[in-house]
Structures are given as C-alpha cells and as structure tokens.
Amino acid sequence: MVDVAGFSLSEAERTRLSHPLVGGVILFRRNFQNIEQLKALTAEIRSLRNPALLIAVDHEGGRVQRFLEGFTRLPPMSVLGELWQQDEAAARAAAEDVGVVLAAELRACGIDLSFTPVLDLDWGRCAVIGNRAFHRDPQIVSELALALQRGLQQGGMSTCGKHFPGHGFVAGDSHFVMPQDDRTLSELEADDLLPFARLAAAGMGSVMPAHVVYPAVDSRPAGFSPVWLQDILRGQLGFDGVIFSDDLGMEGAAGAGSFVERAAAALAAGCDMVLVCNQPARADEVLAGLQLPAQPRLAERLQRMAGAGEVDSWQQVIRSPDFAARQQRVMALGMPQNVLQGPAVGEAS
C-alpha cells in the first residue's frame, strides 16, 4: 500500500499504482480539498486496475480525522469511554452511531476502509495513543469497539484493530523511537490482548500490529514477529483476516534494515500487506526489489476489505433523514477543546 502526493494523480503515481505488487492506496489530509475532489480522486485510482485497488485512510475521530470540511466531526474514542461510565446502553448506541457515520461518509466518497478501531488501552502513559483509546478497562474497550464495528459494518465498511498486541503501555511514539514493553505474555493476555481476542471472535476484518518490542515474548517488533502474528494472532486467537503492517518508514521499523528488507521481513512474519508512506522513492525501491512470498489466501482476504455497496447508493444514504439524525447524535457527543486545537499525530498511525 502506497500513498499519493496531492489532489489528483501524477503520471509517475499512475505508473506506480499500476505496478502488480501495489494492492492499495492510503490517503491523507493533503489529499483532501473538498468532497467533489475526493470523489474524483478515488474514482481515478479505482479506474486504474481491475480488480480495483483498496483505498484506505486513518479516519478515527478526534485528532486523527483526515477529512474535515463536509464531514461530520467525530469525537475521540475516549468520549465514548467517558459516556460508558454514565450510561452503558447510551455509550453502545453512540459508538454504533459513530461507526455508521464514519463509514457511510467515507463510502460515499469511494473509500473502502478506515484503519479503526484503536484497541489499545489507555494506561495514561502513551501520548501518541492517549484519547484515541476508548478506556483503560479492556472489557469496556471491547464492548465499545464491538458496537463501533457493528456501526462500521452497517456503513459498508470492515474494521482494522490496532495496534496489536497493544501500544498503550509504552511511553514512546513508534513514529520516532523503538518502544519496548517489558511485560510477560501472561500480563499482556490479562489486559491488552483481550479486545483483540473479542473482536477477532466477532469478525474483525483486519489488524495492524504495533512497531513495539515485547522482549519477554520475542526480540522482534510485533509487526516483524512470526511469534506474534502467526503463533498468537492467527494460532491462539484464531484471527483469519488481513494483517496490515504499520508504516515501514516509522522509526519503530528501522531495525529491520533497508525498506526492501523491512517489507520482506514483515511479509515473512505474516503480514498480508505492507505500508510505505510519504517516501515514494522508497516505495519504488520496494516494488523493484521485493520478491513476494507465496500467499495463497491473500486475494480472498483482501477482497473482504473492499467497501460494500456502490458510491451512489451511499450518497443517497447520507442524504436521508435517518442519517441526519445519526449525525446530530454524533455531533452532540461534543469535542474537547484541546482536540480541536491540537495537532494530528503522524501520518500513518
């Protein structure tokens, strides 16, 4: 999965996206001018290939919402966790509303997938996660994430739980450092792994592993570890969806070597698709140098990540009275002032 620079495709980007090893495109805030431009961009991307490329975005809510004007402003997930403390039924309903609104507005613009929900626990020590997490309690995180997943599915979109097996306990930001979590596997199983297990059992579509080292389990970061991805995620948790790497340009991936070596290591560990963001020259290096391992079920898995329904149908949905009522309920959840003013986190997260 690669990115593009602006509001439309350059000839170099059209050539890159036509490469047989490219399976998807991730969009960022720099790719959004307005809704009509975004629809034209996704249609242009989709016209290049058959089957079409997967189009994804980090659009969680709070400080990680790439598209703003014309989209409903989504709260950070911690708002739902706070609501849970007051009224569990209302929090579930609100999470489902958020999921429907998030997904349907993106589907109406031709986007297949948002990399959400964040399943990390808010241990109060990781600024890059912070209020992107629902709560500290894994049971509450699970319940709210399941409700969000139901909403996303109603909005024509699958899910991506991140950052497996949990990024919330470490202080470091893996965009810039290599964080290390020294807890044992049993400690992780008692807390951070629980939401991933619950969502996997409920049909979660995909997972993004963390660029975090858990040395009590494996010396390699989770996204490069067959222990985490094959033995634990697929074996113990029975997960059968897509595994996306986090951005290979992040500092947490640098220990795996060159970009070609990083991509090869992630795929060998069990990732189905690797992300190379914001560095087109490095993406071209990977495309030129990568020998793709045999992945007999890859096409089937990736096909499940395609958005459901036609763009025109979703455009009709978001103009309906029922959808307008959902939007009003989501907007009534409120937006903390520090979220409105604060910067977005790193471009692939």
Rank of each mutant, 00 (worst) to 15 (best):
G168F: 03
D246S: 05
E300V: 02
L267E: 09
F7G: 02
A56I: 01
E69M: 02
S313T: 12
V213K: 05
Q86I: 01
I45S: 09
L41I: 10
F323Y: 11
S349Y: 13
A94E: 09
A269Q: 08
G346W: 11
A197D: 00
G61N: 03
M273W: 09
L54P: 09
Q33V: 06
M250Y: 11
G289M: 01
L119H: 06
A216E: 12
V4I: 15
N31A: 02
V177T: 14
A147W: 03
R282N: 14
L302M: 14
V227A: 09
I55A: 02
Q65V: 02
I318V: 15
Q86C: 00
V79R: 11
G342E: 09
D112F: 01
P117N: 05
L21N: 12
G161I: 00
M273C: 13
F71E: 04
V276D: 10
M204L: 15
L185C: 01
P76M: 03
N338L: 07
R49I: 01
L248R: 09
L121D: 14
L27P: 05
R183G: 05
V260G: 05
R16L: 14
L188T: 00
A103S: 15
V345A: 10
L237M: 06
I55D: 05
S78T: 08
N278A: 12
L21F: 12
V101C: 03
A253Y: 10
Q37Y: 04
I45T: 09
D218L: 00
P51T: 07
Q65E: 07
S225T: 04
A306K: 15
F169C: 01
K39T: 15
Q303I: 00
V128Q: 01
C277S: 13
I232N: 08
L194N: 01
V339Y: 10
A93H: 10
A133K: 05
A222C: 11
L148T: 09
V64Q: 02
V2G: 03
A190N: 08
L298R: 15
E310G: 14
G151V: 05
G205E: 02
A253W: 08
Q154R: 15
S313E: 15
R49T: 08
N278T: 02
A147T: 04
P20T: 02
S10C: 07
A325P: 05
G252V: 01
D192W: 04
L41F: 08
I111G: 10
R136V: 00
Q86Y: 07
G346R: 14
A93G: 11
P195Y: 06
G70C: 07
Q303S: 15
